[in-house]
Design a protein around this nucleic acid. Sequence first.
DNA 1: CAGAATATGGAGGTCATCTCCATTTGTCAA
DNA 2: TTGACAAATGGAGATGACCTCCATATTCTG
Lengths: 189, 189
Amino acid sequence: MTADKPLRADARRKREALLAKAREVFDAGEFFDLRFDDFARLAGVGTGTLYRHFPTREALAEAVYHGEVAALCDRARQLGAALPAAEALATFLRGVVDHLDTHKGLARTLATLMADRTGALAEGSRALEQAVTDLVAAAVREGAVREDVGAGAVMMALHGIGAAHDRPDWRAEADGVITLVLDGLRRPH
Amino acid sequence: MTADKPLRADARRKREALLAKAREVFDAGEFFDLRFDDFARLAGVGTGTLYRHFPTREALAEAVYHGEVAALCDRARQLGAALPAAEALATFLRGVVDHLDTHKGLARTLATLMADRTGALAEGSRALEQAVTDLVAAAVREGAVREDVGAGAVMMALHGIGAAHDRPDWRAEADGVITLVLDGLRRPH
DNA sequence: CAGAATATGGAGGTCATCTCCATTTGTCAA
DNA sequence: TTGACAAATGGAGATGACCTCCATATTCTG
């Protein structure tokens, strides 16, 4: 899929500069307020170069987001290996909320990208979803979680948490959603 | 709040024309693909007039959305009066999913507006939230629902359902979320 | 080190958004 | 009805973000 073409030294350098500055601007929550052209200058790069590397704003966001997602997925795998499935799922979900809380920019980005019908974050999103699906499947196998509601519903709830990132009482409500999901998932006996 | 100013006959007519055409375009799912200027001409109105009545695309969406929300809120009140609180809440939430399912355009609009930091749908959204809050509060009073998780979490879950409207298996997953929320809300004993 | 291949940057074109105001339409008092 | 004032209209054109294009610069390769 990703046919990694040999990239000229020059190009790699600029690309890194763009990604680095993007992460920075992201964490400051200014990513979507910035003129795309101005961003290029901010990163010390010409407009044309910016556009060659990342044809759209969303493409750049997706590139940054990719690293974040990889980290989250790793964590999911680690938890899955170290804890009983139900506990792993709970810890992971709470961890995601925590992560979004400390990286507000990320939450906002996810919300924007998800609302965007271009499917810009398809790849990263799928990876995250796979991680959640695995955790849920393990918990079901373990008998701790009902099987009539899929991981998709959990993803949707996460989407909601991201999408509503600007609510005044976000953190408490996000925790509430996770609580409802986890308690709701418990196998009813 | 809404200081209904006496509107000239002329103005009212144009305003109605805009809203009518907007609803139409909405249901066709073309609302966000249309040049705003072109929309004015479509409605048989000058650009200036469009902008005077609805300063932004979001303002127009919000105006259309307002009617929809009013209907939902009415339904919430009716259910609250006719059924035990817990049942009313369940029926209402399932009804919202049903409504979004038959009005895809609405779901997409909500998703877009919610992702938008301008708070364009603040008013309608607040009304809907109030309705949910009332239903939840009644259920808590009735003792059927836990009190450590607020209505805000339920709203967030609803946001998620709207935000994820383009997932392939949307309906089933949305129902799943509602199931999780309702089961999660049951007072743990 | 010369020539080919690759990448750069930023001036300028394009296009949706929104403003402004000369003109039209509606309202009301006489 | 009519005159006069206020309210509303429409669409030409300003604005400004986004993106393309290509003359120039940098890197690679034999």
